[in-house]
Structure formats: structure tokens, C-alpha cells
Write a protein that binds this DNA or RNA. Structure first.
Length: 647
RNA sequence: GCCUUCUUAGCUCAGUGGUAGAGCACUUCCUUGGUAAGGAAGAGGUCGUCGGUUCAAAUCCGAUAGAAGGCUCCA
């Protein structure tokens, strides 16, 4: 007998060699029907594998992330089986579970595959699933494994096998399909009740541009049809929040082929949101001791040779602009820091001057590969809410922590609660990608880690995510479709001060080198606003709304009263418009709702007679929030409005 | 940059070889209406661009530009 400890702490005895499934069956029939895998002493394994020793056992179901991952991984095998039967000669790369669903990288041997083929594959998957084929695990020797795939003619699996150690290799077979796999898997294919192929994409074998591009098929499966329906509905809802869609609908920004891809045009309403955000940060920065500076959009090539940007990014950047007569070379500025270094150098600095905090909403231009551009989140011209703090080495940690406070203040003010803090470190395998000595890097990395720890931030470490001149603390946020984007960033830099030979005179009357902190709480105005749009579904907080009020006269008879009201509210810095169209009130309300105007002020005979306004808050019948707030005096509305703006 | 897909009116989309359609938006007229779409009429497109096949191309083929989803990249 073996002693099994369950998650609730209870200990039960089972015959040696019992499986997770058998343990589940003894607990309840329902559980046995839902067990996807078993976590034995912390290791997830097949629920059908015998347990031979005393162990802590957790039975994993769809409700456990690891259960889901197992389910989707097994689904990837099912997808492969379906593909193999429909596309003879298909070769397989890798097929892992991902955050939502799974994919399989396949080489279709030149056969065409597109969305039109999805249905066929889905049907095949479900047909195979209904056979309830067991996933059978089988250890296999390396030589035998290679022989198997050689005979099958699958070079990718052989490539994978080369990297594996003999003795640790297992095959899994379900139905007529056998794959190299470490597992674990669900008991049988019958658990898979709903399947949907999501999209196809190209993916380089092993993620290397030099390798052949395989076809990556993304799909998702569920144990119930309803869960698939719910998931698809969720996706539809998320699409409605897409900033590209809302940006068009709400007239915030646009792109033009003539202007060029990745170069956003800010329309009046979008520009207003952006200006409000900038002013919000400007005020916060004045309080935090920053000084605004302004620098040009281009700089001589020499500036970037000095900074190292030319060497690192020169050939992958917009190429230099040449002057017609002297043949001077200028670069569109890809970063503001070199310019700010030169501002630092305009006069000798004393240790008493530090920290010097130079801030600029600096517009930069970067050549991004065309396939990478994405709405406002990845563009070729964007404005950073940039600042560089020049400080003494003993001030680094304190300054860094102050910047963390500023970033968190900005996020909190805008309701960004769902972010993750990422410490972006150097890739130790590729040190040549970075400039600066190991010692300076270690100092910078430990400064960031310490400061983040002292601020009590929960951080994740990411190797290889650092900038080429220094490590970063990045604040990551997700968009409507769950993709992660970097917003705020703080970077400690010991390298650029060296390259620009920045100095200050210390208390000891000796020359010393300052340390730079690069930081941008928003990151870029473009990306920040994109995420803000998706987070709020276009329902900006009142202080950011392009139109805060819409004055809706019942008929043209009340036009004068409406206009007088508009001017009176303008005196209180309230933005909006009067809807003078020859339309009924219901229509005017609808249009204001659709345009997400926070307050509708309805004026007709009654209001004119009483000198009042009827106030309607956005989000009426359709959402169950907001609606008619009744009539009130203008002063009462102004008070209500100003209280909300202050929040 | 690479892979797959897409591009028809301002917007959302129908139209798969035989001289361009709908809804919304827009313009004009009627209507003066009380909390999410009042009515009528009108105007608007060389079907992204260039080339080819064909008696005939929005439709088939090629190139090119944009866009979407990935991959690689991201100072």
C-alpha cells in the first residue's frame, strides 16, 4: 500500500501502483470523469500512470491551469492526427499549449492551407475525439526514436531528438498517431468536445529567421461546447474594445497611406486626450522637481556615433538625411537621451546641482519592420514622455524609487491596476549585444532590483530584455486581446555618461561621473493611449473625455437657452457642444451615447422656464448604469461635474 | 523583412466572368418632437494601384501599396 496525501490534507491508503484516475474514482465518479492529469509530488503526470510510492497527489481538472495546459497539449496531438489524415506527408515541428489554446507548427509539404480548411480539420478532430482513443505513453531509446522519424521522413522531430538525452525519451500514441513527447496527457481524446481553429501564421523553425518557415496553426479546444461559445463571445467583446476600431469610431486618430505606415495622425479629439494626459504628467513632474527642455527632431550622425546608437541600430534605422551642399549627415532622432546629455554638458555641474531632472515630450522616429506595425501600439513616429535624471551614484537608489512612485501614481490615477513589473536584464549568453563593462552592468542591475524590492513591487525577471546600454524596470500591461505591452519604463545607465564624458565637481573638488536614469511613465503617448482606450472601452474618465457634455435642446425653440448654457459652462472649463440638429431628443441622446459623451444636458420648455437643466449620465438603458439624473440648477451641475473631475 | 489572409461609397458590409448594391453617415425638404434611431427625396464608387488572360474582369492570373493575425525584431 502507498500513503497518498490529498490537497485537503487528508491521507489515504491505496494499493501500490494505483493511478490518479483510480484515486479519483474512489473519491467520486464525477471527479473521475473530469480528471485530466495528476500532480504527484509537484510533478504533473498522466492520470493513468501508476503511483508507486507515498506521495502528495493533486488531481487536476479543467479548473486548474495545469489541467487546462494538459488538455490543450493533448489537443495539439489530436490536431496533428487530424492533419496527418487530411494532408498526407505533413511533417511536424512543435505543438505546445499556450495561454489560451495551443498551436502546432507544421510543414505541409507545399500543400495549401488557409481558413477555408479550418472546418474540415475541426470536424476531423471531433470525429477522432469521439473514438475516445487513449493517449499511450511509451519510453523509447534515442536510436529507435530517430529511426522511427527517419522512416516517417520528419526532419524536425529528428532535429529535436538530437538535443535530447537517451533514456529520457518518450512517445505518446493516440489512435493512429505517434508523437515525440514528454507528456503529460489527458486519459483519452473523448474529453475533447469542442474544437476551433483560430488562425494560421508563419513561424520560423526554432524561431530563427534563417530556418525554414513552417505553418503555425492556432487552435483552441474545450471540454464542453458551451465553453467554446462563451470564449468566442468573449473574443467578440474584446474586439469591440480594440483601440484601432474605437479610434476610428470616436475620431481620435487615423492613418494615411500617403503620410506613411506607422505614422499616426491625431485628430482633434485624440489630440485633446493626449494634451490632457501630457498636462497631467507635466504637473506631476513639476512637483517632483523636473525641468522641461525642448530639443530638435534631428541630430547629427556624430551624436549617435558617440551614444552608440549608430553602431547598434544604424543600419536598421531610417537612413541619414544629407544636406545638399556640405553633405552633412543628420539622423531622425530615435531617442532623446543624447540630446539631453548635451544639455547636461552646456556648463560645468556641481554635485550641488544634482540630481538634474530634464523632461521632454520628445517625438522620436524608429524604423520598425513593416510587419511589426500595429495600430498605435507599434508605430514609426511616437512621442515619449521622456526624462533623464543625472545624479550622483549615492542618489541612484533614492531617485529610482521616486520614479517608481511617479509611475505608480500615473497608473493609479488612470485606473491601470492590472500591470506587472518586469526587471529586464541582460542576456548572459550574448554579452556582445550590450555596451559597458560587466561591473557597471552589475551595479545597475542590483540598483534596480534593490529599489524595486524596497518599494515592495512584485517583479518578474526577464533575461535578454534589457536595453543595450542598461537594464530596465518595465511596467507591462495587457491590451484587449491579452497581448502584453511595455508602458512605463525606468532604466539605470552608467554607460552613456561615460560615452558623453559627463562630469560634475564633487565636494572633494574632484571630477566625478554622474549616473543617468532614463524614465517614461507612459512609455509613449501613442501606446499608452491605445491601452487606455482598450482598458476603458473608449469611456474615458471625465477629465479626459474629448466632449464632456452634450447640450441637447428639445427643439430649436430652445436654441438660445442652450447656447447661453454652453457659454456659461465654458466659463467653468467644461468642454462639449450643443446639438442643434433638427432631430428628436431620443435621437440626440442616442448619438451622444454612441459617442460616449459622459453628460447629456437636456433643455426644453420646462428647463427654460425654471432656469434649470435635465441631466443624463451616459450609460442608460443599454448598460443599466447612468440614465436620467433629473433636473437641477446649473450651479448644482457644475458642482457635480467638478467633484467627478477631481476624483 | 518572412508566412497566411484581406482591400467594393465617409463607415460597416453584400455582390465569384456579362455595363456596380444595402444599411448607417452626408445634403435638401417635411416634421417642433421630452431621455438610445421621425418621414421623404437626393447626392456619393474608373471595386487599393499597375499590368496580363478574355469578345467581356470587382470577379481569373501576376506585380505593387496598405491592412489583419502570427514569426523574427523592438534603443
Amino acid at each position: 500500500m502507498i500513503r497518498v496525501t490529498l490537497p485537503d490534507g487528508s491521507v489515504r491508503e491505496y494499493p501500490k501502483g494505483s493511478t490518479g484516475l483510480e484515486i479519483a474514482a474512489q473519491i467520486s465518479e464525477g471527479l473521475a470523469r473530469n480528471v485530466l492529469a495528476a500532480k504527484v509530488n509537484g510533478v504533473v503526470q498522466d492520470a493513468t500512470r501508476p503511483i508507486d510510492t507515498d506521495a502528495t497527489v493533486q488531481l487536476l481538472t479543467w479548473n486548474d491551469p495545469e489541467g487546462k495546459a494538459t488538455f490543450w497539449h493533448s489537443s495539439a496531438h489530436l490536431l496533428a492526427e487530424a492533419l496527418e489524415s487530411l494532408y498526407p506527408g505533413v511533417k511536424f515541428g512543435i505543438g505546445p499549449a499556450i495561454e489560451t489554446g495551443f498551436y502546432y507548427d507544421v510543414d505541409l509539404n507545399g500543400q495549401h492551407f488557409s481558413q477555408d480548411d479550418f472546418r474540415k480539420v475541426e470536424d476531423k478532430m471531433l470525429e477522432l475525439a469521439r473514438q475516445k482513443n487513449a493517449y499511450v505513453r511509451k519510453p523509447v531509446g534515442k536510436a529507435d526514436a530517430i529511426a522511427y522519424f527517419e522512416e516517417k521522413g520528419d526532419p524536425y522531430k529528428i532535429d529535436l531528438l538530437q538535443g535530447l538525452e537517451d533514456g529520457s525519451i518518450t512517445f505518446y500514441t493516440q489512435g493512429g498517431f505517434t508523437d515525440l513527447c514528454r507528456g503529460p496527457h489527458i486519459p483519452n481524446t473523448g474529453f475533447i468536445k469542442a474544437a476551433r481553429l483560430m488562425n494560421v501564421a508563419g513561424a520560423y523553425w526554432r524561431g530563427d529567421e534563417k530556418n525554414k518557415m513552417l505553418t503555425r496553426i492556432y487552435a483552441v479546444t474545450f471540454p464542453k461546447q458551451k465553453e467554446l461559445d462563451d470564449y468566442l463571445h468573449l473574443l467578440e467583446e474584446a474586439k469591440k474594445r480594440d483601440h484601432r476600431k474605437l479610434g476610428k469610431e470616436l475620431d481620435l486618430f487615423a492613418f494615411s497611406e500617403k503620410v506613411g505606415q506607422g505614422l499616426p495622425l491625431w485628430l482633434p479629439k485624440g489630440a485633446l486626450v493626449r494634451e490632457r494626459l501630457e498636462n497631467f504628467l507635466r504637473r506631476a513632474q513639476v512637483r517632483a522637481g523636473y525641468q522641461p527642455v525642448v530639443t530638435p527632431h534631428i541630430g547629427s550622425k556624430q551624436l549617435y556615433v558617440t551614444s552608440g546608437h549608430w553602431e547598434k541600430y544604424g543600419k536598421d534605422s531610417f537612413q541619414p538625411i544629407h544636406t545638399p551642399d556640405e553633405d552633412e549627415e543628420f539622423l531622425l532622432k530615435p531617442m532623446n537621451c543624447p540630446h539631453h546629455c548635451e544639455i547636461y554638458k552646456t556648463k560645468p555641474r556641481s554635485y550641488r546641482d544634482l540630481p538634474l531632472r530634464l523632461a521632454e515630450f520628445g517625438t522620436v522616429y524608429r524604423y520598425e519592420q513593416s510587419g511589426e506595425l500595429h495600430g498605435l501600439t507599434r508605430v514609426r513616429g511616437f512621442t515619449q514622455d521622456d526624462a533623464h535624471i543625472f545624479c550622483r551614484p549615492d542618489q541612484v537608489k533614492d531617485e529610482f524609487m521616486k520614479v517608481i512612485d511617479l509611475v505608480l501614481y500615473v497608473f493609479k490615477s488612470l485606473g491601470f491596476n492590472d500591470y506587472s513589473a518586469q526587471v529586464s536584464l541582460r542576456d548572459p549568453e550574448n554579452r556582445e549585444k550590450y555596451i559597458g563593462s560587466d561591473e557597471l552592468w552589475e551595479r545597475a542591475e542590483s540598483a534596480i532590483i534593490e529599489a524595486a524590492a524596497e518599494k515592495g513591487l512584485t517583479t518578474v525577471m526577464e533575461l535578454g530584455e534589457a536595453a543595450f546600454y542598461g537594464p530596465k524596470l518595465d511596467f507591462m500591461v495587457r491590451d484587449a486581446l491579452g497581448r502584453k505591452w511595455q508602458l512605463g519604463t525606468i532604466q539605470v545607465d552608467y554607460n552613456l555618461p561615460n560615452r558623453f564624458e559627463l562630469e560634475y565637481v564633487g565636494a572633494d573638488n574632484q571630477k566625478h561621473r554622474p549616473v543617468m536614469i532614463h524614465r517614461a511613465p507612459f512609455g509613449s503617448m501613442e501606446r499608452f493611449i491605445a491601452i487606455l482606450i482598450e482598458n476603458t472601452a473608449g469611456n474615458f474618465p471625465l477629465w479626459l473625455s474629448p466632449d464632456q457634455i452634450a447640450i441637447l435642446p428639445i427643439s430649436e425653440k430652445y436654441e438660445d437657452y442652450a447656447n447661453d448654457l454652453f457659454f456659461a459652462l465654458q466659463e467653468h472649463d467644461i468642454r462639449g457642444f450643443v446639438d442643434l440638429r433638427d432631430e428628436k431628443i431620443g435621437r440626440k441622446i442616442r448619438d451622444a451615447e454612441v459617442n460616449k459623451v459622459p453628460y447629456m444636458l437636456i433643455v426644453g420648455e420646462k428647463e427654460q422656464a425654471d432656469g434649470t437643466i435635465s441631466v443624463r449620465r451616459k450609460g442608460g438603458a443599454a448598460t443599466g448604469q447612468g440614465g436620467d439624473l433629473g433636473s437641477m440648477s446649473v450651479d448644482a451641475f457644475v458642482a457635480l461635474f467638478q467633484q467627478e473631475v477631481k476624483l
